[in-house]
Amino acid sequence: MISIPVAVPAAAEGKTDISCPHPNIAKPAGIPPRPVPPPDDPVNSAVGGDALATHGLVIPAGAKQPPAVTATTWMVADLDTGEVLGGCGPHVYQTPASVQKTLLAATVMDKLDPKQTVTVVRGDLDIEVNSSAVGLVVGGKYQIATLWLGLMLNSGNDAANTLARLAGGGGPDGVAKTVAAMNAEARSLGAYQTHAVTPSGLDGKGQFTSAYDLALIARKDFANADFRKYVLTKSAQMPAQPQLKQKGFQFQNENKLIFGYPGAMGGKTGFTTVARHSYVGAAARNGRRLVVTLLGAEAHPLRGYQQGEALLDWGFSLPKDASVGKLITPEDVAQQQAAATASRAESTTEAKPVSPARSSSSGGGLPMLPVALGVAVLLAGTPLLLLLIQRRRKRPQVR
């Protein structure tokens, strides 16, 4: 059920955004310019609740100040209830880096047999020079489960390409088909600010996401038992390829959350020089399962996963009924899409055809203009319909 929070950021009252707490450190030199994001969309920015439509801080009324982190945007939410506990610019467009691999997992993990053995082709290794790779070799034979481990533990871009190609049918257009499926999956989850260009999260023109969207994606991922198993694996073995005279080797999980944080459920790290550090992590404590998402962070004084730990600690310290918004569900999205389809059908049925003679006498068919406009609005109004539904729901109580 979608609900609207009682906590409203200052910006919603016509004032400036509330500043997010950041440590007082110098920004590293030589960082490439950030990609220019799409313009803010008032409707998409308010998905999950009006209070989330801010570039600044939004927390429950009376809640203690969250920790100062270098992340440009972040959000903490409850995986089970869907309540958003707080955030900094939760709907602000950001560049994802390798946390985009969580969208790849959400899209195709259930479509690939983990026990199937596949052969790597040369195109699978077409990745950016010096980018993260798990060490696949052309002609090598690997189980799909091993590729998922290489993707989630070691952030292998070679594994991302291989999985995307296979999920897209195995041909030369397989990766492109899977990227299209990833974007369709994002829309079905209500992640309207997410657009994938690469399956791995390597930078691509027009590729964006948001802290809110990543939480929606993570919610589907952590509902998958295979995903939970992979991201909690501390180390794995890449099999030898004797026919290629390639020895086997061990690789480690780069998400250090699972090595020491109480109740850690796993997650995904990310980094490119453009996106900077990104992170998705989840943990369970006292009957609650929280997820944290953060984007645009620096690794000093805290690494991405450490910033995630600090924000999870803050989230667990809040009352269970604390909320500033809601994670929408695929059912919510499907419901409003069905409503839009029904409305379009009704508009088409009720629209009466205009004869050429009447059309001419009435100015070239102008009587049909309101119907055309109505259909156009319905076609473009998927998030708007969802927002209107939200505003009719009962507001939660926040202490």
Rank of each mutant, 00 (worst) to 15 (best):
S3Y: 05
P9R: 09
A12R: 14
G14C: 01
T16P: 01
I18T: 15
H22T: 14
P23K: 00
N24L: 13
N24F: 13
A26W: 04
A29E: 11
G30Y: 11
P33S: 04
P37Q: 06
P37G: 10
P38G: 00
P39D: 12
N44L: 10
S45Q: 10
A46V: 10
L52T: 11
L52I: 13
A53V: 05
T54R: 08
H55C: 05
V58M: 06
I59G: 01
P60C: 02
A61G: 05
G62E: 03
K64F: 00
P67H: 02
T73C: 04
W74G: 12
M75N: 06
D78T: 14
L79P: 14
E83W: 06
E83M: 07
G86I: 06
G89Q: 05
G89M: 01
H91A: 10
Y93A: 07
K101T: 09
V108P: 01
L112V: 14
P114M: 03
P114K: 06
P114A: 06
V118T: 14
V121M: 03
G123R: 07
E128Y: 09
V129N: 04
N130L: 08
G135E: 10
V137D: 03
V138N: 02
V138T: 13
G139I: 14
Q143C: 03
L151V: 08
D158R: 08
R165C: 09
G169H: 12
G169T: 12
G170K: 12
V175I: 15
T178K: 09
E185A: 09
A186K: 08
A191P: 02
Q193E: 14
V197L: 06
F208K: 02
T209A: 11
D213N: 09
D213R: 01
L216K: 11
A218M: 09
R219V: 07
D221F: 02
F222H: 07
D226H: 11
F227N: 04
V231S: 10
V231Q: 11
T233V: 04
K234Q: 13
A240T: 06
L244S: 05
K245W: 02
G248Y: 02
G248N: 01
F251G: 04
E254T: 11
L257P: 00
I258R: 01
F259H: 08
P262Q: 07
M265Q: 14
M265F: 00
T272N: 02
V274Y: 06
S278L: 00
S278N: 01
Y279M: 13
Y279L: 13
Y279S: 02
A282G: 12
N286M: 04
G287A: 02
G287L: 02
R288V: 12
R288Q: 10
L295C: 08
A299E: 15
L302G: 01
Q307M: 11
P319K: 12
K320M: 01
D321N: 15
A322S: 14
V333I: 15
Q336C: 11
Q337I: 07
T348D: 07
E350K: 15
P353C: 09
V354F: 10
S359K: 10
S361R: 01
S362I: 06
L366K: 13
P367C: 11
G374H: 12
V375I: 14
R395I: 09
Q397D: 11
V398R: 06
R399C: 00
